[in-house]
Each structure stands twice: as C-alpha cells, then as structure tokens.
C-alpha cells in the first residue's frame, strides 16, 4: 500500500500545483492580456514573443535557466533565500513559478484574442451610460468573454498537469512537494513497473480527455438557424 500512497500523493501535488498555477495565471494573465490587446506600440510584438516563448522552447531550456536563477548563487535565488530563509530551487514555490511561466501563453493568448475581438465599442457605450472601466470590465467584458476565460483556465490547468521538463529541472523529485504525476510515471517506467505506469498514464490520458471535452462542451453553441 505505501506505493499506492506515493502515487496518490503525486496526484494531490499535481492538482495543487495546477490549481494554484491557474489561479495565479488568471490574476496576472488577465491584465497582461488586456494590456496587450489595447497596446498600440512596436514593443507589443516583443512582449507577445516573450509570452509565446514557452510554446516553442523545449521545457528543459526554460528549466535550465530557471534552475540557475533559483540557485543561491544568483540574485533571484539569493533574494528569495533572504526573504524566506529557504532555498528556492527544488521547492514547491519553484515549480509554481516555473509552471506559471511555462503555461503563460495558454492563458494570455485566448484572453488577448477575446479582448481584441470585443473591441472598444461596447465599453464606450457603457462609459457614456456611466459605467467606468472597472464596472465595464465586470459587467460588459467578463460576461461577453466568459467562454474564453473558461478556455484559458482549462488550458492553463491541463498544460500544467502535463508538464515534465521544467518540473524535473527545477523541482527535483521530492514526494509531497515537487513529485508530480508525470515524474512519478517516469519513475515507474524507469523501474520497469509497467502496471503502475499504465495506471498513471491511462488515468492522465482519460482525465485530460474528459477535461478537454468539457471545455468544448461549455463553449459549444448550436448554430443559429436563420429564419
């Protein structure tokens, strides 16, 4: 039974990492996407490229640089150590930061696209009726881009669940802290423990399938028949 507990622990860690990452991504990704959608400057493409980088970069590359940055020899790691008294590399916080960076485009891009598509017209209409920017965001933008928020959150969550390289590089393999499902699976395969590997791999496959189907179901609107 203790091995079963280890896998369950890995599942819990994974859900914790993915859930927290998604929450952070929505909080920082929404203003970033809004800013990019409204930005009218050449620097926009640079920021967009940086945001999109994790889409094409091998996760190990990102992981490698983050590992260096998080180590106590470099400034970010040093500052973290001074502030919290703990090492940043190989910690739960490290994989959260890594996951946020790694899944950023999956949240920012759908939101940016939705904001761009919505345009300023309805916000202007709201403004002349007395709705300021915050009011307008919550009562005009949010309801009209709800589907994109669901997509962004689900993609961010699913992508975080599926990450491997970044976590391996910066998180190590500490049970209950940084040992997530994909790493547990890797361990089972290395140990030729295919039964357990099947359980995890199959579980991830079906779970992801269900999650994606749910997203598409929520976003599905029957085609309106013109009368």
């Amino acid at each position: 039974m203790p091995t079963m507990d280890a896998d369950l622990l890995a599942l819990l860690t994974t859900l914790k990492v993915a859930g927290l990452t998604t929450l952070i991504l929505l909080i920082i990704g929404t203003p970033l996407a809004w800013f990019l959608a409204k930005m009218n400057s050449r620097f926009k493409v640079i920021i967009e490229a940086i945001v999109a980088l994790p889409l094409i970069l091998p996760p190990t590359v990102l992981g490698f640089y983050l590992l260096l940055a998080f180590s106590p020899q470099y400034l970010p790691g040093q500052l973290w150590q001074q502030a919290t008294g703990q090492q940043l590399a190989f910690s739960f916080s490290a994989i959260i930061i890594g996951s946020v960076l790694y899944s950023l485009p999956f949240v920012v891009q759908p939101l940016q696209k939705a904001f761009e598509q919505l345009g300023d017209n309805l916000l202007e209409a709201g403004a002349v009726l007395g709705a300021g920017p915050i009011d307008g965001f919550f009562h005009i933008v949010l309801p009209l881009t709800k589907a994109s928020f669901i997509t962004a959150a689900s993609l961010g969550f699913a992508h975080t669940v599926g990450e491997f390289g970044v976590v391996l590089m910066i998180g190590g393999n500490i049970p209950g802290e940084t040992r997530v499902l994909s790493i547990a699976l890797f361990d089972h395969v290395e140990a030729f423990n295919y039964t357990k590997a099947h359980l995890l791999a199959g579980g991830l496959l079906i779970g992801s399938m269900i999650l994606l189907a749910l997203i598409y179901l929520i976003n599905y609107t029957p085609k309106q028949v013109r009368r």
Binding site: N121, G126, V128, G132, L144
Partner: peptide, 20 residues
C-alpha cells in the same frame, strides 16, 4: 472628465446594445 462622469448619453450609429 471621463465619459462616465459627464452624464451625456450618446446614441451610436451602430446601436451598440449589449448582446449578453
């Protein structure tokens, strides 16, 4: 003074009703 504080309504050419 931002538009929401001017208390002038504007009817647009393209009605701009809230579709939701």
């Amino acid at each position: 003074i931002p538009p929401q504080k001017r208390n002038f309504s504007l009817v647009f050419q393209d009605n701009r009703l809230f579709p939701h």
